[in-house]
Design a protein around this nucleic acid. Sequence first.
DNA 1: GTAACATATGCATATATATGCATATGAGAT
DNA 2: ATCTCATATGCATATATATGCATATGTTAC
Lengths: 121, 121
Amino acid sequence: MKDEFICKENCPHYKIISQVKLTCPNGNAIIDLADMFKIFADSTRLKIICAILKQELCVCDISELLNLNQTTVSHQLKVLRDSKLVKYRREGKQIFYSLKDEHVIQIISAGLSHISEEEEK
Amino acid sequence: MKDEFICKENCPHYKIISQVKLTCPNGNAIIDLADMFKIFADSTRLKIICAILKQELCVCDISELLNLNQTTVSHQLKVLRDSKLVKYRREGKQIFYSLKDEHVIQIISAGLSHISEEEEK
DNA sequence: GTAACATATGCATATATATGCATATGAGAT
DNA sequence: ATCTCATATGCATATATATGCATATGTTAC
């Protein structure tokens, strides 16, 4: 990628750019943030999250409720476990999942309020 | 997908399930929400968003600042335009992009506060 | 008009990932 | 120990999407 032909002298506003560089989150934080949003970027996972938003449910309940294959639910629950968004407890043969903290609710409601405002326009 | 062999009589907690069905966002809202989070789920787009968080920048500035190919930046700006998260204005040959509203900042800071709390643990 | 520049877009490709089948694991009941 | 049930996991596959090259579009200057 040659940078000579890209508006080197004319265009870039160097003073602004150096200011922005200071205030931007650093590269790792950005990647962590993107990884976190990836978790919410799948409708199946979002449905699961919403299902356990207010109470714990076992895997089978979630499958039944959302009309999803048990395998699919387990796969996505693993993703949610790995990203530490859910906790779980065993009770006999069943495993009950629930949300780990309140941040999830904040993130989702921030998203929902954006969506709903878009619809008004 | 046969539903007979899935814990039909033993497991599902039908009363809870019917309650949850009432409180869950409906399918379309979930899909819209997932689509919105998809936008934030890519580090290149997040970088671009952060770059224009506080002031407008032209495409060339963004490429320069983030050390990204101009084509890549244009592609991702198109995604952001299509999802109505950014606005833009032309000034001569250059086009300046900026954020469209405050929701973006709320969503990102909700995400950031989750990230930073995770690190403390 | 043409040349130069800033940005956008079509196409091809590489990479990620969501899903489902088959099967493994782990727990209770007999 | 064996059977059944609830859940998890390995593997294969289909789909989505991020990127870059080549090129098109739109603007200014001459």
